[in-house]
Amino acid sequence: MEVLIAIIKLIIVVTVLSVYVMYATWYERKVIGHMQQRIGPKRVGWHGLLQPIADTLKSFWKEDVIPEKADKPLFWLAPSIAATFPFAAAIAIPFAPPLHLANGKVFYFSVFHSKIDILYILGMMGLTSFGVLIAGIASGGSKYAFTGSQREAAQIVSYEAILALALLNPILMAHSLSLEKIVEAQRHLWFVFYQPFAFVAFVIAMIAATARIPFDLPEAEPELVAGHMTEFSGLKMGLFFFGQYVMIFVVSALASIVFLGGWTGPVLPGVVWYWIKILAFIFMYTWFWGTFPRYRYDQLMDIAWKALLPLMVLNILWTGFALAVGLPVL
């Protein structure tokens, strides 16, 4: 019975996220369009609402070009890994607050629920970089793909460390690795007010870990064509985008749970609060895309290792000290 429920939940989550990815592309094009005083997609369907479906159908019929020198099995493996692990991380994300049933049981709106949710999500996020790495290796010595994947791997490894360190402060305050317990600990005041530095570091690191503007060095068009995706075409390239958009959803949900109190909030019901916060983060991504220029690569590494890492270590020391002597943490 439990297995059956889990399978049904899994199917629903994968379907919902796939539709979400399709409409996230539409939404981004629309928002960016209006930010730049254009109108964005408008022709297919009402306000271009059928555009993502048309795009998906088109990518199915694209010719699948595999370079002669490519490492064939790895060339197949790369896009599948890049799309699988973000979904693996997303199954631990709750889609709504847990439901307390009449017979004393709790119904969780996430496929996979454990005491170590945060570690699981971090682990799966770390593994997504392999899709990019393999894409670079499998492209058969294409310089753009190789450089792009090197950049992205180094970037993700650096910023995963910052992400984990920034998450450590709320974990210390909540005394738990489970998402429900962390939300529970924020009933009175959200952690963003206790830990403003950790929140800022987390937001910077989450943009860098998903490789979006202003940190989209791996796909910097003027230098690298399309980075690690240069040699991929059709559905294979689509899978990389799939992974990236699901990843954006995962880190947005994580940020809203850990720092903004998840489903706690006044007046409105919990689910509404929760989704307002997630959608605000997703909008923030698009907003940054429309407003910021791209950083240089050495600046990107400097931000991680010379600014954020010392700041986060000091922050953890302070949090630990304050918790040990019973001071209010700020």
Binding site: L122, G123, M124, G126, S129, F130, I137, A154, I156, A164
Partner: peptide
Amino acid sequence: IIVYAGAIAVMIML
């Protein structure tokens, strides 16, 4: 998974 597969293996690949 985080330390060995996520960090050390990525280092080896890099």
